[in-house]
Amino acid sequence: MNEELKIIIIIFCHLAILLLLSPLVNSIIKKTKALLQGRKGIPLAQGYYDLIKYFHKETVISNQTSWIFLITPVILFSSILLAGLFVPLFSEFGSIKILGGIIVFVYLLGLGRFFMSLAAMEPGSGFCGMASSREMMLSVLIEPVMLLSLIVLSLLADSTQIFTIISSIARHNLTLPSTGYVLAIIALFIISIAEIGRIPFDNQETHYELTMIHEGMLLEYSGKLLGLMIWSGWLKQLIIISLISNLIFPWGITNTFTLSSILIGFIFYILKVFIFSIFIALIETIIAKVRLFRVKDILVASFVISVLALILIIQESGKGSLL
């Protein structure tokens, strides 16, 4: 088998895992939350049932909308799926290593978000417009911190490729990690929870129009388009979870192409994702959602943490020792 064919096979596996695992991960978070709150919760396959139902329903579109409303689900879905290819899941070959790495990753997510809030303003519904302006307010605060903390990690590894960052962290895992790395990971963790719209920042399970952010933007969508939007939300959640869990536990990602190593990498990956989803459910259970106007305080805190990480990294690298 030649090299290119291998890479194509791995990339297809990568895409299939992202698409198939994302509804399950969302259901795991929901189920864990329900169990922790003493409820029975949904079955684990509920995400798939939902998607099948959405794709069988008729799509109703308001006559006030233009082509942007129609094209947004497709752009959102494809940009998030493409961003997913930048994050290595279980194998080195699955991640794209041309282009600018983390910068393209962050702005692919930003592209999807831009179109989503544009489309939410299309039908002229008041709640959609409100949710869209809130999403923009949050993303102004989220994007720089996400980029900054990833830049700190890339300075540690001397590369903007996410796989190189992860493998350079894995090489140093026997000694205690440097303080800059720990601070950057803390900032990245806070910002990831904001990015996937989980509880201290946004409540995904609310159906009260005045408090919705992400859900509020989907109010006017129906049928197949709604299915696509919800699926891309789950995809983004899985991608962010894979990124942060691979950065914290950088083990098990293979760089060889044998069946056994790929299988081990895959099992490690599934374990990491499940543990992380359960952890997120735990955080959602013990922390209350903060007021929208206090959200900026938490985000400012994570911004300061990442700036501190950057300062420490620069100072350390001045003395000649990295990580």
Binding site: T175, L176, T179, V182, V304, L308, L312
Partner: peptide
Amino acid sequence: KELTPSLLSYSTVILLLMSILIAG
């Protein structure tokens, strides 16, 4: 010998973080 420098750097960073938290 291995742990002392990192313990020192961690305590230093926590020292700074705590004063930021007091300010915030």
